[in-house]
Computed example of a mutant assay.
Amino acid sequence: MVGRAMAAHMRADLVRDALDLAVRRGLISGDAVFHADRGTQYTSGRFRSALAEHGMRPSVGRTGSCFDNAVAESFFATLKTEIGTAVWATRDDARRDVFAYLGYYNHDRLHSTLNYRTPHEVRVGYRQGLTLVA
């Protein structure tokens, strides 16, 4: 998970905020592919222009195919299992807990599909590999 944002709406500005955060933090480089479902926030002209500004390519899953978004679906299933489906008293409480979980997920949680490494370890190793090749 490289970008995150939370709001009381699901408009294009929300996903653009998450994308902009990931870019500012140096976690996305040009020619990356942003894959999403067919939600209006992802297919809007506003969001597509944000992808173009960052040199990213859009990818949209097929209608009715859960397999196209299997990685995202798996992440959200894990989030719901590990953080629970609590009802928080305030949006700030939810933001604090969810964002803390994302830090754990990226930096501490081992993933079997990553040979029992964290996403952070894999990303750093990938960047170092690119540096050595260059």
Rank of each mutant, 00 (worst) to 15 (best):
N106Q: 11
M1H: 07
R11Q: 09
G64I: 05
D20M: 11
A94C: 11
V15R: 03
R62F: 01
L110A: 07
M56E: 00
R91V: 07
R11W: 02
E73S: 07
S59N: 08
L110C: 05
N69W: 02
A52W: 12
A86M: 13
Y104L: 06
E53Y: 07
T90M: 12
L102E: 05
G103R: 08
R38P: 04
S29W: 08
A7V: 00
R4V: 09
Y104D: 03
R62N: 04
A52R: 15
A22Y: 04
E82D: 11
G103E: 13
A7L: 04
V122R: 13
G64P: 01
W88L: 06
N69A: 04
R11F: 02
N106V: 06
T131N: 11
V98C: 10
H54L: 04
R24N: 10
T78A: 14
R57A: 09
S44T: 00
H54F: 02
D31I: 00
F75E: 01
Q41L: 03
R4A: 13
Y42E: 02
D68P: 00
T63D: 08
R16K: 15
E121R: 12
H107R: 14
L79P: 00
N106M: 07
R46W: 00
F75S: 02
P58C: 01
D37K: 04
I83H: 11
E82S: 08
G61S: 03
R62K: 11
D97N: 11
R95E: 14
D92V: 12
S74T: 12
V87F: 10
R127I: 04
F47N: 02
R16G: 03
E82R: 10
D108Q: 15
T78G: 06
L19K: 09
S44D: 01
D17K: 12
Q41D: 03
D13H: 09
V122T: 12
V33K: 06
D37C: 03
L14K: 05
Y105Q: 10
M10K: 15
R11P: 01
R24C: 08
T78F: 06
C66V: 05
Y126V: 06
V122E: 10
I28F: 10
M1R: 06
G30V: 08
V87H: 14
R57W: 09
I28E: 04
P119D: 05
R11K: 15
F34S: 00
T113F: 08
V122A: 12
Y116I: 05
A18N: 05
E82H: 10
N106C: 07
R46E: 08
L110Q: 07
L114P: 01
T131R: 15
D92C: 09
V87M: 11
D68E: 03
V98M: 11
A8H: 13
G30T: 10
T85I: 13
R16I: 10
L110S: 04
G84H: 10
T78L: 15
W88S: 09
D37N: 05
E82A: 08
E53G: 10
S49K: 15
N69C: 04
L114E: 02
L102Y: 07
